[in-house]
């Protein structure tokens, strides 16, 4: 075992333990925080594979944005665990069947010919000035440009839809019209009255 193996095994064990914690812990906030830990350790693993762009993007997107909003929601919800557990045994066979199908599918893919470690040549280490950000950008905007643009459009549609669902014109609350506020001039609001001084009695 050399130094790199040591780092790999320590990261991998933290990853497995935290991923187990995500699905076994009772408190959803703890689960979400462990999921954050799982993301960070897996980005460490990706760094070991010299995929620094993907590793940093994983932290930036999933840890920095997605999980923050996730935690936000989980912390604000009042989750009643007893009610969540109510139908556990009733739905257990269905869930187990789903899990089994998933496990079989994954094993078919992973144990097949493509992913076997015998068929995969060890990647050659790249020079220090090799920028995989540049390589990824070049690939995304040349060979895969249509797929990439399509994904972007789908995301845009989802975004517009999310806004459209939450947008409703409420009449029971007051809202500010900032441009109106800015457009207000002194003369609209105050009237200077000149009054003759009154005599003191």
């Amino acid at each position: 075992m050399n130094f790199q193996d040591f780092i790999f095994y320590s990261l991998a064990s933290v990853l497995v333990i935290s991923a187990l914690g995500v699905i076994t812990l009772r408190n959803p906030v703890h689960s979400a925080l462990l999921l954050v830990l799982a993301f960070v350790t897996s980005s460490g693993l990706w760094l070991l594979l010299e995929a620094e762009f993907l590793a940093i993007t994983l932290v930036l997107v999933y840890v920095g944005a997605v999980m923050v909003l996730f935690l936000f929601v989980v912390m604000m919800l009042d989750i009643n665990l007893d009610r969540l557990r109510e139908g556990f045994w009733k739905w257990f066979p269905f869930g187990a069947a789903l899990a089994l199908v998933m496990a079989v599918e994954m094993s078919m893919v992973l144990m097949g010919q493509q992913f076997g470690s015998d068929n995969m040549p060890a990647p050659t280490p790249k020079a220090a000035d090799y920028s995989n950000t540049k390589e990824l950008g070049r690939l995304l905007y040349t060979d895969y440009v249509y797929a990439f643009e399509l994904a972007a459009v789908i995301l845009l549609v989802a975004m517009v839809a999310a806004i459209a669902i939450t947008l409703r014109s409420r009449t029971d609350k007051k809202s500010l019209n900032i441009s109106k506020q800015i457009a207000v001039r002194r003369n609209d609001r105050i009237r200077v009255v000149s009054m003759p001084a009154e005599k003191k009695e």
């Binding site: 620094e52 762009f53 940093i56 993007t57 932290v59 930036l60 840890v63 920095g64 944005a65 923050v68 000035d129 920028s131 995989n132 950000t133």
Partner: peptide
């Protein structure tokens, strides 16, 4: 190479 990205990731943590 990805220094700026790294900084963005760290500040978002």
């Amino acid at each position: 190479n990805a220094g700026l990205l790294y900084i963005l990731a760290m500040t978002s943590l």
